[in-house]
Design a protein around this nucleic acid. Structure first.
Length: 587
RNA sequence: GCCCCCGUAGCUCAGUUGGAUAGAGCAUCGGAUUUCUAAUCCGAAUGUCGCAGGUUCAAGUCCUGCCGGGGGCGCCA
């Protein structure tokens, strides 16, 4: 996609959507440095970063300091020479030197406003296709079959889905795979429970709750009775060997669970490209283990097959159990090999909780030894806790995910009860607000932090929250409708976004930074970086809203301000969409 | 015992390849609505960035040690 620019002064600025403001400035800076100072040490990073405060301009380059030794010149002199010699494009209004040698970039708001106007003329917000010809496999959510989804599962699902959406928006070919836990030892336990404790009526009415009950009972039995555990292991081995009875049971468990999962995914607006689960790779595990042995990566130890990873300073990794059963390491390795064969991804990204860090380090090490042409990335997040203690299925203090979602929608409904919407629109809006609040509460923090879960915080509807962003969006949409009603003869889309008042200039800069924000967020695997950006954008808009009139502004100014507002609402909606959150037209 | 992660305001947390005076929300206090949705905005107050060294022109950020919390470490996933 390439936006056409008529103004010839723009030809040396951002002409298309293949770059970001930051990248454009960094590229220009690098070239200008080379032109002025000649060849520089290869490792030199010559780029710009956004400034912390507006007094220092919009972007800054700090390399005069780092280059001082190589050039044997004082930093301040380097910066001064750069500023006085470099031939700046129209986008850069001026450069100046500050402090020990910071180079501050002040950008021309009118040029930026025109670029914004051109790029978003049709209401879309283009992003650079940095992912062109790149394939990524995203492995997220992955709930265990026969266990209900509780609030602890929401993190992988919501964070993974946001990454999924961002990758797609940046032009990556992305394969999102829901790697269900459908082939583990739990089935041995579950089959034993099914055989001994089943309540058929309960299974018909509340299948997952009944499977959960059977699992808990059988698990408790296995803890005090070693024979029980051995029998459970034997049932698992039978299943893995293709025993028809156990296979039938297993298939039933999986079907029941998937129906329940699908209902929740639909509610969360989460989709996958493939749903394979561990069982999909079950016929490939033996082959992987053989390869590991043949290549000297793994060997027999105490009856099991174990990969020793001393060179990587990692503990040994068991890939095949003493009883011949394959464990999750074998399964994950088989999955990597299969995905490499089928999709040729440059990387596979796993989104799981922090407890699996060691596991994925081991898997990555083994894949390197197997010389599989793929990079594994583990995006881990902190566990969800209740105030005072951790979640535990056995302690029975889990909050079912659906209970949380119901509660969120109920609270949102209370909030909009006094509006004049029709009942159906109220229900739909409450759904959007409630689900959005739950998702945003999770996405707005650094994934790595340990989350202490409280209902009030998850459902908070003010401050840095999903509803805050949705509300800002809805108000702008309302404003645009009013404009059409009051001024049906004119079209704000013909106007260039306003860039005169300080708060307008501030918004122009923020809007221009949207693409690079998305790129940074995906590179760091942090949807929270995008969430923070959106929060600040909404805050900047709210500040503008307080200071200048829109509909009551003079002709011309009115159009350019409304145009600016439209850019904000488009960006908010796009940003929320990348987080998997809907934006209602009114609230 | 070994490995990984975290430690920032009363609470919950941001803090881009190391950059200029460490920031939000909640809570507290004080303001703003003849106006386009007050779910908003403006202001005040709040800090030994766990502790101690080190590297650097520059450290909340990197290195080492220690303290505190969480997680993991051959037959669970």
């Amino acid at each position: 996609m390439q936006a056409k620019i008529q103004d010839h002064t723009m030809t040396t600025t951002i002409r298309d959507t293949h770059t970001t403001l930051e990248q454009f400035l960094s590229d220009w800076t690098r070239q200008a440095f080379l032109d002025i100072f000649g060849p520089l040490p290869a490792a030199t990073k010559l780029g710009v970063t956004a400034t912390a405060t507006p007094e220092h301009g919009d972007y800054q380059c700090n390399q005069a300091m780092t280059l001082a030794k190589a050039l044997q010149t004082r930093p301040r002199d380097i910066a001064t020479r750069f500023v006085e010699t470099a031939k700046t494009p129209p986008l850069i209004e001026r450069l100046d030197v500050a402090g020990p040698g910071f180079i501050n970039y002040h950008l021309d708001r009118r040029v930026m406003a025109r670029t914004l106007g051109v790029r978003t003329i049709d209401g879309t917000v283009p992003l650079p296709d940095v992912g062109r010809d790149r394939t990524v496999i995203l492995d997220y959510s992955g709930p265990n079959v026969a266990k209900p989804m509780h609030v602890g599962h929401i993190r992988s699902t919501v964070i993974g889905n946001a990454l999924h959406r961002m990758y797609k928006a940046l032009g990556y070919r992305v394969v999102a795979d829901n790697h269900l836990g459908d082939w583990g030892t739990q089935f041995g336990i579950l089959i034993m429970g099914y055989r001994h404790f089943l309540n058929p009526d309960a299974l018909r009415e509340q299948p997952i709750a009944e499977l959960e009950r059977l699992y808990v009972l059988s698990h408790a039995e296995s803890r005090k009775n070693p024979d029980w555990l051995d029998q459970a292991r034997a049932e698992l081995v039978k299943l893995q060997a293709g025993d028809p009875n156990n296979t039938e049971l297993w298939r039933n468990f999986v079907d029941l669970s998937r129906r329940e999962f699908d209902r929740i995914y639909q509610r969360l607006n989460v989709t996958f490209d493939v749903v394979r689960g561990e069982s999909y790779y079950r016929n490939r595990t033996a082959d992987i283990v053989d390869q590991l042995i043949a290549r000297g990566i793994a060997r027999e130890s105490e009856g099991a097959i174990v990969a020793f990873l001393d060179a990587e300073k990692l503990p040994p990794c068991i890939v095949r159990k003493r009883d011949g059963g394959m464990n999750y390491a074998a399964s994950d390795l088989a999955a990597v090999a299969d995905r490499v064969d089928e999709f040729h991804p440059e990387r596979i990204v796993y989104v799981t909780d922090e407890r699996q860090q060691l596991h994925f380090k081991q898997i990555a090490a083994i894949c390197r030894r197997l010389e599989l042409p793929v990079t594994l990335e583990h995006v881990w997040f902190g566990l969800m806790r209740l105030p005072g203690r951790t979640f535990s299925t056995r302690e029975g203090n889990v909050i079912p995910l659906e209970t949380l979602l119901d509660e969120a929608e109920t609270r949102a409904m209370t909030m909009i009860s006094s509006t004049d919407m029709a009942a159906s629109e109220k229900r739909e809006t409450a759904r959007i607000i409630g689900i959005g609040a739950v998702k945003y509460a999770d996405l707005s923090q650094n994934p790595r932090s340990l989350v202490t879960f409280t209902m009030d915080k998850a459902l908070s509807l003010e401050g840095n929250s999903g509803p805050y962003l949705q509300y800002a969006h809805a108000r702008i949409r309302s404003l645009l409708r009013k404009y059409h009603d009051q001024f049906p003869q004119t079209d704000y889309l013909q106007a260039t976004p306003a860039a005169n008042e300080a708060s307008e200039k501030d918004l122009i800069l923020r809007l221009s930074r949207f693409p690079e924000t998305v790129v940074h967020a995906i590179d760091a695997y942090k949807p929270s970086a995008l969430a923070e950006y959106l929060y600040e954008l909404a805050g900047a808009y709210n500040a503008l809203y307080q200071t200048v009139p829109f509909l009551k502004a003079p002709d011309g100014i009115r159009e350019s301000r409304i145009r600016l507002c439209a850019c904000v609402s488009d960006t908010l909606r796009k940003g929320l969409d990348l987080l998997g959150i809907e934006a209602p037209e009114r609230m």
